[in-house]
Amino acid sequence: MRLTLKVWRQKNKSDKGGFETYQLNNVDTHASFLEMMDVLNEQLVNENKIPVAFDHDCREGICGACSMVINGRPHGPLKGTTTCQLHMRHFHDGETVTIEPFRANAFPVLKDLVVDRSSFERIQQAGGYISVGTGSAPEANNIPVNKVDAEKAFDSAACIGCGACVAACKNGSAMLFVGAKVSQYALLPQGHPERNERVLNMVAVMDEEGFGGCTNTGACEAECPKEISVANIMRLNREYISAKLSVEKE
């Protein structure tokens, strides 16, 4: 099939950037979206042009590296699917496809479609862990965990940290990402000793990094490639309020 691609090109962080249009004449419908991008890049190399930079790695929907916005939708139009798992059979012959980077001021563009998501890292470093040193763990079955809670914790932990929730949110809010991590630990007994400090620290860094606030539009859940539920945001709110109310100020 034939495609017209409108791709965001930006040399580096300080460049203003803009759209370029490319024609692809022979796209296989079985190819994945990123394989289509490979074909475009091969074509650009052959034409002595600079290929389009984009993040990608595992190409099986789990590493969370791929990140583009396709026709206005993070990871494209297919529900519960990362860009790398999106296949060209979901587009039609002659279509014009607009490809942009994730847009959020907390995710500055580094080049073309590559954005800097290190703000997520700093949120995780603020408290996205249980403080257990290597070797100090008790026997695993000494900590029984209710099966339903374990399943729920898994659902939250399935987040791949791609940032589509931020990209989808009109407010550029990271609440779903933070909510998923806070929820995972809030649902497990292992996470309880640090639950107050964790949520307060993570939310503080989230705000410092310049993410917007949550207004409960639900776009994050709808665009999340792992279909992480907005229930995580509500649990985050609950954890935050309860921590705020119970922590004694020094």
């Binding site: 759209f19 939708r73 942009e100 847009r103 407010n171 207004t215």
Partner: peptide, 17 residues
């Protein structure tokens, strides 16, 4: 919230989500 995204998307289909 407006400060969190100063460049908006060219293609938008927020209605879908």
């Amino acid at each position: 919230n407006m400060k969190a995204r100063t460049i908006s998307y060219a293609g938008s289909s927020a209605t879908a989500t």
